[in-house]
């Protein structure tokens, strides 16, 4: 049982591809939603590795989702393979600007400043009624893929596979980043920023790079969510959306790449079933589940899996 990590990834992607064909359609939709969210959760995890907790990932999540919406509305672009890079690019651009502002801050101040920025975007989206549709949001028509018109179930399946591919790419990128010097240095900044600085490493550049990567990932998640849901509204920029991403990151565990993705899937399922079986007390169930995981599984849901995996590897 000595599998390389890449093989595990390939296996999981294969499982997701099969899942798209055999699972009921509503579950496939939920899975696509969870994967999109999972990518955004990865963006939180990238920052957490550097010791930063962002409560404002909604800025990029919503920014990219609206970017897709505007591209469709203003320029009539419906090609998914154009929309996704454009949205991600815009999110990275936003991140480059916001990063100049927030990269000096740490701890709760970083959290609150990112929160403030995303709430300013929320305010603008609500206020600029004529452009953004205000709180009603804007509709995202079904995208095309390589010029192919899609509809109904086919469209859902294509968007799902797009999410699978994007998630795999994002997971691979984050894995590479974590194993690269920039990733290790980010981890070191979290452990002791002063020491890293004394060792001569450029702390602010390391943090800024992590922030850029994170904004791109959050943007990717936002773009996928927009294409999947077919509607964007300012709620995506509200602080509870960003808070939810942090929540899922901890649920899944922040030590690995697969943990957050698994966390997102489990979270969506818990929430869906809580809605079904306890429409009057679902918040309590979600809260209680979260509490139990934090208190009894400190490494997140994925940590037991990781332990078994390590043991199997010897």
């Amino acid at each position: 049982m000595n599998l390389p990590r890449g093989a595990l990834g390939v296996l999981l992607v294969a499982a997701l591809v099969v899942a798209g064909l055999v699972l009921p359609r509503w579950l496939v939709f939920l899975l696509a939603l969870a994967l999109a969210k999972g990518v955004a959760v990865l963006s939180v995890v990238v920052l957490m590795r550097a010791g930063l907790v962002s409560f404002g990932q909604g800025l990029f999540f919503a920014g990219a989702a609206y970017a897709a919406g505007f591209a469709m509305r203003w320029w009539g672009i419906r090609e998914a393979l154009l929309l996704v890079p454009w949205s991600v690019g815009l999110a990275v651009g936003l991140g480059a600007l916001a990063g100049l502002l927030v990269a000096r801050y740490r701890d709760i101040f970083f959290a609150m400043l990112t929160l403030a920025l995303s709430m300013v975007l929320y305010g603008v989206l609500i206020k600029a009624y004529g452009v953004t549709g205000g709180s009603d949001g804007i509709r995202i028509p079904t995208p095309t893929l390589l010029g192919l018109q899609l509809s109904g179930d086919d469209a859902r399946l294509v968007v799902y596979y797009l999410a699978v591919a994007a998630t795999a790419a994002a997971a691979w990128a984050v894995g590479r980043y974590a194993a690269a010097p920039a990733g290790y240095l980010a981890h070191a900044v979290r452990d002791n920023e002063v020491r890293v600085a004394y060792l001569g490493a450029p702390v602010s550049r390391i943090v800024y790079a992590a922030f850029l990567l994170s904004s791109g990932l959050a943007g990717l998640g936002g773009a996928l969510t927009a294409l999947n849901v077919g509607h964007v509204d300012p709620g995506l920029a509200y602080w509870t959306t960003s808070g939810e991403l942090v929540f899922i990151a901890v649920l899944g565990g922040t030590g690995t790449v697969l943990g957050p993705l698994a966390g997102a899937v489990v979270y969506e399922l818990i929430r869906s079933y809580a809605f079904k079986y306890a429409p009057y007390a679902w918040q309590m169930l979600v809260g209680a589940a979260m509490l139990l995981i934090i208190l009894f599984l400190p490494g997140g849901l994925w940590s037991p899996v990781e332990r078994v995996w390590r043991r199997a590897q010897g």
Partner: peptide, 13 residues
């Protein structure tokens, strides 16, 4: 509750 995104998923379910 839960926003438009949640409601789209719930309608499908």
């Amino acid at each position: 509750a839960g926003g438009a995104e949640k409601q789209v998923a719930e309608l499908r379910r």
